[in-house]
């Protein structure tokens, strides 16, 4: 793995230049619909034990 400014085998991750807020927003954007889907599926799946 090549990095222009770095020598490690994995890419650099410098929190000083990538806002943690952006990372949190990006994960929320995909996490919220996924959590909705998971919840709906759990409700549906619970019928297996109650229905």
């Amino acid at each position: 793995m090549s990095t222009d400014a770095d020598t490690s085998s994995a890419p650099t991750t410098d929190p000083a230049t990538t806002s943690p807020l952006l990372i949190a927003l990006a994960w929320l954007l995909v996490g919220i619909p996924l959590a909705y889907g998971l919840w709906q599926t759990l409700v549906k799946a619970s019928a297996l034990f109650t229905g």
């Binding site: 650099t12 410098d14 230049t17 990538t18 990372i23 995909v30 619909p33």
Partner: peptide
């Protein structure tokens, strides 16, 4: 091409936006 400080933890949500 990412700048030196671009977090790789932004790439999985980018991929998830497509795969979801």
């Amino acid at each position: 091409v990412a700048g030196p400080g671009y977090s790789r933890w932004l790439i999985p949500p980018a991929a998830l936006a497509v795969h979801l």
